[in-house]
Amino acid sequence: MDQWQLLHTEIRNRVGYLFLDNDQRFNTLHSECIQELRAALTVLESESAVGCIVITGDPGESFAVGANIAEMRDFTSVEAWDFSQLGQGLFEQIESSTKPVIAALNGITMGGGCDLALACDLRLASERLQIAHPGVKLGIITGFCGTQKLPRLVGSHRAKEIFMTSRAYSAEEALRIKLVEQVFPADQFMNRVSEYAEQIAQQPPMALNLAKKMLNAAENVCIANGQVMELGAFASLFPRSGHMEKIEEFFTKHAN
């Protein structure tokens, strides 16, 4: 299934891997790369043999960095708007995916790469992680949802520090401020990621899907409505309610 130029995919033990690999020192998230990511994700999402998806830049030096600066420098506002829209579309796809998507942060993760990590459900980091959001050094803010997702994950004061100082954070710091959920030793990184992802991929798909939907919705709805949605999601996981039996009884009776 490797029809891709800037990445390759693999399925192993119910985990679908998406390896960013654009043949340069850093994986840049330029337009073509984002389009390929969207297409490859669509394929992995539709595979019933995949219970969980991992995005990584392993074994390269970077997970991902933002767009190509030389290309971006000459953007008009309209081109910037389109580019932002394209990236946000990818992140919406990750969020609305029925499968959990894990970012395995093998190394340098900057700008748009940080935003890609934030769009995923979980972030696992190698000890080699260097993560930063250096937009203010370039005279921009990010357009890939980072200004919204980062404060929701680490709090507004820490998000402002990350954006304002532009500095790189180590794996240890990222773990302390809850920017990543786990840190694994660099020499066992992908093995540990696989173990972790395989465990999630073993869970019943419907329950995983609904848990992800509920947790994402929790950001946007009041607690009363959230609880109503939770009831519905919970009930939908039970195959035979009394109501279903009544319906079946009705059809059985009328079939005869």
Partner: peptide, 13 residues
């Protein structure tokens, strides 16, 4: 995120 997208675009002017 839409608000952010618009602010991002403004940066490029």
């Amino acid at each position: 995120c839409k608000m952010e997208r618009d602010a991002f675009a403004v940066c490029f002017s």
